[in-house]
Amino acid sequence: MDQMAVYLFYFFGLLAIAGALGILITRNLMHAAFLLIAVFLSVAAIFVLGGAEFVAVSQIMVYVGGILILLIFGIMLTNRISSDKIDTGFGNVLLGILVGCAFLVWVGDYILTQFNDQKAALEQTNNQTEKLGISLIADHVLAFELIAILLLIALIGAAYIAKKDKEEVME
């Protein structure tokens, strides 16, 4: 990575952290949901800086375009429409801090000891997407197909649960 990329990396890293802190601090649930977008986009930018373009775009597509919208929709539909602000509270503060610190130590230890020699792995490769596609459908085909079937089952299940009973419709 050249100097510019390092600065950009720190910029997006800080942006992601700022967004995450914002989610923690804000009491407005909608603001928290929108701040999550900033976090996701910053992480996508970090992926791009790491040379993983396809992963970055998938991140935007799946997390921002899919999961986050679902989340916001959930908030909107579960609350009364046009209600006042939806607030969040702070609970389990002590336990949360303990778990957070433990996780930080665990991940920090891993990063400090395991990632020293892997800078070379960040080389830019051409036709990344093509290689990824081929390896998905050749080397990891079983996992790929299993996930596809699992998702299909989940989809059908959701449609079945959402379906109204016939008697209910008649009434």
Binding site: E53, I60, G65, I69, I72, N127, T129
Partner: peptide, 19 residues
Amino acid sequence: ETGVFFLLAVVSLDVVGVL
């Protein structure tokens, strides 16, 4: 490299703006 996939992903962000 991801071309049109990038296009679809980025344009899907406008939903967030609408919300």
